[in-house]
Design a protein around this nucleic acid. Structure first.
Lengths: 229, 229
DNA sequence: GACGGCCCTCTTGTATACAGAATGGCCTCC
DNA sequence: GGAGGCCATTCTGTATACAAGAGGGCCGTC
């Protein structure tokens, strides 16, 4: 595999999983040294990440990992809503019913999946769902647009440690979407998707609010006297 | 300005204006020589173009300029429709009425603008419209998503030599959108946008069909005897 | 005459060296 | 004591050199 691809995958993984904190300066020399490659392929990797919005190069020359704010998430969701609703409509018109019938079953067994395999097993089902939708739509441009939006939501998802209660509700919402797509009901699929996205956004926003409050208690220097206790 | 930015802008301009034909192999060495820079910044420019879909690197290692097919345009429009309709709804809720009132006037005078300044003057008004919509929405993610879709349509637009009849109808459609946004009517704005996009797609598709037929007459080696006449 | 293998050339991917610019710290002066 | 300027360090942007791999063409053989 190419060194630049490895660097890209490695940095992407680090950013999505919060191993690199927002605001961290991404020095080319230091990163190249750490990954054991030269600056040339590393620059290529950083450029890709910058174009995807995972690295912010607007302020100053040195790239930094952007923070995840409630505002940025809300903005991403406005784009995501547009794309996913369209995707749901198109998928309902072009789908292979058997594939979505199978997904209905999978989401029906979500509580078992969650109990046996944990959140990772559940997210694997969601990944199959996303892939099935992309395949049904059959539009590379739509797939690419959705991929660029979903990347940012992975970061947000990793934030809140995957509230199981919410995941069960999300599974029920996914099941409704799959049923509508399976039955070829475009408008119902779009509506069910809208319902799901609203639920997701509400959960993420709440998580961010909790995190921001906790951050102020432990980090804000203007509110001292709490962190040492 | 950075050499890589100049190379990017130059190549982007060449591709959008069909100075580089689809299928042309983009040799790094040759391009770097032609632009008077080294391969390093040129590679950076090519990578950006590849991520934007203006250069195809999937087949083989050497990048090529992708063709504009009716299918690819239709796919781009499925994404564009999703984003522009959402954009229209959001703009209607957040706009400054004065700005869109001014745009209504501008599109009302489109025939004069077209007669005096030609298609470039008209497209400048469309650019102001796009910018006003982006500003009204106030969502950087939406702006970026729309920008990546609009790039491809510039190529398609340059294809058909800007049928003036169509441009007048497009101006009327734009005027309706601006009126709806100005009045804060989100659903009407979305509907008017849908009408406009359908008209645009139909025109572009027709242009492509004509071009494909002409191309077969003059280029297809299996149908000889026409080009020398 | 056709097919297969070998060699050559051109391509990309990577590493390294160098130059210009910006930032941070430190010293000096007010 | 504070503020401003200068210097050094470090960063990015660019150029060039090198190596590995793939593709094409040519030659030899069947």
């Amino acid at each position: 595999m190419l060194a630049s691809d490895r660097a890209y995958a490695s940095l992407r993984d680090d950013i999505l999983n919060w191993r690199i904190a927002p605001g961290t300066a991404l020095s080319e020399t230091e990163l190249a040294l750490r990954l054991g490659i030269s600056r040339t392929p590393l620059r290529s990797a950083l450029a890709r990440l910058a174009l995807e919005g995972l690295v912010d190069t607007s302020r100053g020359r040195t790239g930094v990992v952007p923070d995840v704010s409630a505002e940025s998430i809300a903005q991403q969701f406005e784009v995501r809503e547009a794309l996913e609703l369209q995707s749901a409509r198109l998928a309902a018109r072009r789908r292979d019913p058997a594939i979505f019938h199978e997904l209905v079953e999978s989401f029906a067994h979500a509580s078992t999946t969650l109990a046996d395999g944990g959140t990772d097993a559940y997210y694997a089902v969601v990944a199959r769902f996303d892939a099935a939708m992309d395949d049904a739509v059959g539009n590379p441009a739509m797939r690419a647009a959705l991929a660029s939006v979903r990347i940012h939501l992975v970061r947000a998802r990793r934030l809140g440690h995957d509230n199981p209660e919410r995941l069960l509700r999300a599974a029920a919402e996914h099941r409704l979407i799959c049923e509508a797509v399976r039955d070829g009901d475009a408008e119902l699929a779009a509506s069910a998707t809208a319902v799901h996205l609203r639920g997701s956004l509400t959960t993420i926003t709440a998580t961010l609010r909790v995190r921001a409050a906790a951050g102020q208690l432990t980090e804000d220097p203007t509110t001292p006297g709490q962190e040492g206790a």
